[in-house]
Design a protein around this nucleic acid. Structure first.
Lengths: 183, 183
DNA sequence: CCGCTCATGTAACTGGTTACATGATTTA
DNA sequence: TAAATCATGTAACCAGTTACATGAGCGG
């Protein structure tokens, strides 16, 4: 009854995006802006298999012509498991600040020379800005497109997070510039 | 020459915190505010072993009395590997917005009843606020304590990220409250 | 002397990655 | 008709988790 993060997301997608194929789930994961979800076959199909074994979902053959295909649907047990997973008591990890590989790397920047540090920070600035712009666009589209509150909130959260990263880098660059100016 | 995220962090800690024991590294990971790093023996010791095999670090026996202990030190090869790891070209993942288990869960909130949703959001609000306060304190301490720029920047980034999460939740709550008021 | 912390490890398990494989269908 | 995409899967590999084990030193 304890779902992995991927299992839960797959189950959740089957639940909210209606009965669908495993492939459809894969595509959603692949296209998600966050790089966390690879949506690789080697991850998704075994996860679906486990969900089937656990009776969290049911599969019905739905072949269009000769092409084999399975439509996956949520079971009542699956809904129960999902609600469990959503229970904050069960997933305390949802409370702690997520780790950020970029932030992690800052810790070790002192190992680089001054010019290497500058290079790193300039690159990070450019990339985080780019990312923020991409997400801002997505947020705008969802807002204008009248997506449901939750989807908009997710986009908003992602945007704020992207802005946090830009802030972090630009503040560091400014700080170092002012230090250099003084010296 | 391709380091896992954990291997790189272990290597980096050995590099910046001077020669130290594997246990010392474990403690740093355990105490880190972000829940990503468990610092479990089963992860750290094998990682150290791999770094030793790869000649990224060297070990010298440093037993105090009868207690066995190994001091780990960075090698020049290790420094090279770390610089590689810091190279943005090598770690593009550092550019994408990090995934957030809380944000992930928002996507599936529509499966809950209205009151369950409220419960979830209120709990999330309380917890993210608490987390933000904790991190704010840490940031203050580092600023006042004259920590180096990078450590302060990391704390700042973590704070901004915590604030982003609070924003995300509070905005969603407000939005739903105003919807309810209208209805 | 009992229990906690220091300090090291090991073994079983699990879940995700990479890469491969198959065959049907669509599109250029 | 060749290439891309739909749709399914499998197998080897790897790293991290959980849990266990050992033994020295230290504080109450």
């Amino acid at each position: 009854m304890k779902l992995s993060e991927l299992e839960a997301v797959v189950l959740g997608l089957i639940a909210v995006d209606g009965p669908c194929t495993a492939y459809a789930v894969r595509l959603v994961l692949k296209k998600s802006l966050s790089g966390t979800w690879s949506g690789s076959a080697g991850a998704v199909y075994p996860a679906v298999e486990r969900l089937l074994i656990g009776k969290y979902i049911t599969a019905t053959a739905a072949s269009t012509g000769l092409r084999r295909s399975k439509k996956l649907a949520l079971s009542s047990l699956g809904l129960k498991a999902l609600k469990q997973w959503l229970n904050p008591h069960v997933s305390p990890l949802a409370a702690t600040v997520p780790s950020d590989p970029l932030r992690t790397r800052l810790r070790f920047l002192s190992l680089l020379t001054k010019s290497e540090q500058k290079e790193f920070l300039d690159d990070a600035m450019a990339k985080t800005r780019l990312e923020r712009d991409k997400i801002e666009l997505d947020f705008q589209q969802r807002t204008d497109g009248g997506d449901n509150d939750f989807a908009v909130a997710m986009a908003y959260g992602a945007l704020k997070m992207a802005e946090a990263r830009v802030d972090m880098i630009s503040r560091l660059i400014d700080l170092r510039n002012s230090r250099d100016a003084k010296a």
